[in-house]
Nucleic acid binder design. Structure first.
Length: 868
DNA sequence: AAGTATTTC
DNA sequence: CGGAGAAATACTT
């Protein structure tokens, strides 16, 4: 598993990589790298598949070349400018860092294979894999020594390991086992998120809190007397236990990773009372720390299913996922909820380990000299110029060890498809027939979920593995096999005609339906169907729709505002549930709303407000920037104030006009987006407006406050010019939000680095007082004797700028970076470097707060997957 | 906005 | 004898 040194220069290397040869310990039974590689290449060479792989590889190489060309055109000016913007963003991110959640990623070890082995003792101690001769989905660890891995075709695996037993998958069984596991997980987080049958995220923050007061009895797990598979020997049970315990989680009792040993364990740790489970005769008592909880989970899983799991514990999902891989199989690893612990962990982490960075991204980054997270951070400015906004934001998050701190429930599905691989089909009639069958299957699946969509896509893969997709969108939703086929047929026909007189030699065909109407659309339809219909069957589908809409609107989450920036998304994640309601409300601002749904909504709103701790005074706006209460001013006025607050600091005009304006825009943009929801409320009644917006804003403040609190002040780690993390602000303000009167208390804190989470409030004081207090620049760490926030921010800007220059100087030696200064870029240096860079992402970074479109979804990449 | 290709899990 | 399904993103038109 531990393929730390990944080479990925060419296909061969990639194969090695995929086969996980790095962990081949060349045991007496396994094969060594060369041998495996040779066998694979023999089986691969000359195949159509391989041909296509080479072709794809060339495409990637071309992409890299283009990228390098772009890079070569970047001037030092541009880079500096980018650095400023990126660092500003990084600083905001740093301030939003939230270490308060305990996220666990559970990963069953070699799941399918393990189930098969459990249920068939014959397979014990033999290399096995689950799948077919054409594709394997899992292999056991024994087989992995031969280079047999998931995603490898079985026939090749057989050559690597002739004794390999390939077991056909029993998905029903895996589902059943998975359900058993999930039942356990639900005890710790009823809202856990299952990613697949063998993987899940939990947020155990709440559980940990409650658990602190649990008596031992409540944390006691009884040991099953005898496994179904073993011959029970009453005597052996106890012996078995300890041995068994040890085998369950080696690190449970012994070698704790450094993190776990560092002083001041987690905040959740009560005391040292429970570092290890206490094993009694036939029961085990687990402690109250996160580590103990996860041990307990794994223990219970093992007891219940006789299968082992690995787990990762961290403050966010991205890290938790990486952690679960660290001590696999049958192990766990924790990153303590401290900034330094996160940074230490991230430091040498190969980016490929991160979920979302795949083969291609790895290779592209490698071309830029980036393989570890530290390098990823160091190149942040460059990356912002070479990659799309969502990509570099994603990269930046990774390199700062940030990820999602909450688990978002799955949104609505966005598409549904069926596809099938088969031996070559070239006859047109067969192709149509196949297409029809696929459409029927799809229609069935759709019916199960009651879905209808407007876009039909067919996917074709020919015998050379070349893939093509063709889509068509119609004006009204379809769902039946006939409707879908009618559209798919045309798409297929077009393709057949296009190649005529050559037949399409297909090896795969797929049909997909997407473009499901969202609530908005449904509403719209509902309203306007009557007038709009053309055909009879459309009437049917439309009315079918009406039945559901009313109910579903409140049950299903609604997409997020498209306008929100990446950062805003992140920052406001915690108020999603509220937003859902907002969105709905605003969407229906045109009187579409039935009075019934309005009531429901209002009820929801008031519930939300009740649970919101700061609901007492919801007329009060508190600026999330200066934390100054704005009283019951109008929303417009409030937003203006916030804008002013945010754009104030970017008085970096002192340095360069262009820079100043762009950062200003950036900042404003963020705010606008943060508050876009509020603004939309303008059309609503005044009363509602204030409710919504004030809550929204208060929560925002809280979010900021919490984030800062979480980080607390970490002055010790704020060593300038160290390992590229220098400019991350590690000093922050601790903002206590006082719920009583909805006012803010801001205090400066120092962290006692040895104690876990003991935060001593040095001088808590109200906002009014704080302004007289010195502010500490998060960059240079020096006190600024000013009460003027704007001035203070100016200082920070200056500091930041200095830091960047320093870093740029350093970078001169870096092999990757273009040398800056007059030397190389003389040709360009004089000109305005407006858009030498390709418009890949063109305006989005510097301007276009309005045109920018951020996709509404949970980007796989973006925070939410790892954040999920 | 729609369509197509690519990437990732 | 080299999978399937879903989602996201980027690029193109």
């Amino acid at each position: 598993m531990d393929s730390t040194k990944k080479k990925n220069g060419n296909y061969k290397d990639d194969l090695l990589l995929r086969m996980g040869l790095n962990d081949n310990k060349a045991g007496m039974e396994g094969l060594d790298k060369e041998k495996i590689n040779k066998i694979i290449m023999e089986a691969t060479k000359g195949s159509r598949f391989y041909g296509n792989e080479l072709k794809k590889e060339k495409q990637v190489n071309q992409r890299i070349e283009n990228m390098m060309q772009q890079k070569a055109q970047i001037t030092s000016q541009q880079l500096r400018k980018a650095q400023l913007q990126v660092d500003r963003f990084a600083m905001e991110l740093e301030q939003s860092r939230d270490l308060n959640n305990t996220i666990v990623h559970i990963d069953m070890d070699a799941f399918y294979a393990a189930v098969e082995m459990r249920d068939n003792p014959e397979l014990k101690d033999k290399p096995i894999a689950v799948g077919s001769s054409s594709m394997l989905s899992t292999s056991n660890y024994h087989a992995r020594r031969f280079g047999v891995r998931a995603a490898m075709p079985g026939f090749i695996a057989k050559r690597l390991c002739p004794q390999l037993i390939i077991v056909p998958p029993n998905f029903d069984k895996y589902r059943a086992v998975s359900k058993e596991v999930k039942e356990i997980l639900a005890d710790y987080d009823p809202n856990f998120m299952a990613m697949s049958l063998d993987e899940a995220y939990l947020n155990i923050t709440k559980h940990l809190q409650e658990r602190q007061n649990w008596p031992e009895d409540k944390r006691r797990c009884f040991i099953k007397t005898g496994h179904s598979l073993e011959n029970d020997k009453p005597r052996k049970e106890i012996n078995k236990l300890s041995e068994h315990e040890r085998s369950i989680s080696p690190l449970l009792f012994e070698d704790s990773p450094p993190d776990l040993q560092s002083p001041g364990n987690t905040s959740q740790v009560n005391s040292e009372e429970q570092n290890n489970p206490q094993i009694l005769q036939n029961s085990v008592v687990f402690g109250t720390s996160a580590e103990e909880v996860v041990k307990e989970i794994r223990f219970r899983i093992e007891q219940k299913t006789t299968l082992t799991a690995s787990a990762g514990i961290a403050p966010n999902t991205m890290l938790a996922k990486v952690c679960s891989d660290k001590n696999k199989p049958n192990g766990q690893y924790q990153i303590l909820p401290r900034r330094q612990a996160v940074m230490d962990f991230i430091k040498d982490l190969p980016i490929r380990k991160v979920s979302g960075i795949g083969k291609v991204t790895e290779k592209m980054l490698k071309a830029l000299g980036i393989t570890t997270c530290t390098e990823l951070y160091q190149q942040r400015a460059l990356l912002s110029l070479l990659f799309s906004e969502s990509s570099w934001h994603y990269f930046l998050h990774i390199s700062m060890g940030l990820g999602s701190t909450h688990l978002t429930r799955d949104g609505e599905r966005k598409s549904m498809s069926v596809e099938r691989t088969f031996s070559e089909i070239s006859k047109v009639e067969e192709q149509y027939k196949l297409c029809q069958e696929l459409c029927s299957e799809l229609a069935q699946d759709l019916q199960k979920e009651g879905l209808k969509g407007r876009t039909v896509t067919i996917k074709l893969k020919n015998v050379n593995f070349e893939v093509k997709t063709r889509a068509s969108t119609v004006s009204s939703v379809v769902s039946t096999a006939e409707e879908i086929f009618a559209i798919a047929k045309e798409l297929l026909r077009t393709e057949i005609d296009a190649d005529f007189p050559h037949p399409l030699r297909l090896r795969l065909m797929g049909v997909r339906l997407s473009g499901f109407p969202n609530e908005e659309d449904k509403k719209h339809q509902q309203r306007s169907i009557v007038g709009f219909l053309q055909a009879g069957n459309q009437t049917l589908s439309a009315t079918g729709c009406t039945e559901k809409t009313d109910k579903d609107q409140f049950l299903k989450p609604v997409e997020m505002s498209h306008k929100k920036s990446f950062f805003d998304k992140k920052r406001s994640e915690r108020k999603w549930s509220h937003q859902d309601t907002f969105k709905y409300e605003t969407v229906n601002g045109q009187g579409v709303q039935t009075s019934q749904s309005f009531q429901v909504l209002k009820k929801k709103m008031s519930e939300n407000l009740e649970t919101s701790e700061s609901s007492n005074n919801h007329q009060m706006f508190t600026c999330p920037v200066c934390f100054r209460e704005q009283g019951s001013i109008s929303l417009d006025a409030f937003n203006k104030h916030v804008d002013a607050c945010l754009s104030g600091p970017s008085t970096s005009e002192m340095f360069s006009c262009s820079h100043a304006s762009s950062t200003e825009v950036n900042k404003k943009e963020n705010v606008h987006h943060s508050f876009s929801l509020c603004e939309k409320q303008d059309s609503e009644t005044h009363q509602k407006k204030t409710e919504i917006t004030s809550e929204d804003c208060v929560q925002l403040v809280e979010a900021v406050g919490n984030a800062s609190k979480a980080e607390s002040v970490d002055a010790s780690s704020n060593k300038l010019s160290e390992e590229g993390y220098s400019s991350l602000p590690s000093t922050s303000f601790n903002i206590e939000h006082c719920h009583q009167n909805s006012s803010c208390t801001v205090s400066l804190q120092n962290e006692d680095s040895t104690s876990s989470r003991r935060q001593e409030t040095l001088q808590p004081c109200s906002y009014e007082v704080i302004t007289d207090q010195a502010l500490i620049c998060p960059v240079c760490n020096l006190e600024q004797k000013t009460s003027d926030l704007t001035l203070f921010n100016v200082h920070v800007d200056i500091c930041l700028n200095k830091g960047i220059i320093q870093e740029l100087e350093k970078d001169k030696v870096s092999p990757v970076n273009q040398p800056k200064g007059s030397t190389r870029s003389t040709g360009n240096s004089g000109r305005v470097q407006k858009t030498i860079i390709k418009p890949k992402r063109s305006g989005s970074m510097t301007k276009s707060s309005t045109t920018k479109k951020i996709k509404p979804n949970n980007p796989r990449h973006t925070l939410d997957t790892f954040f999920k």
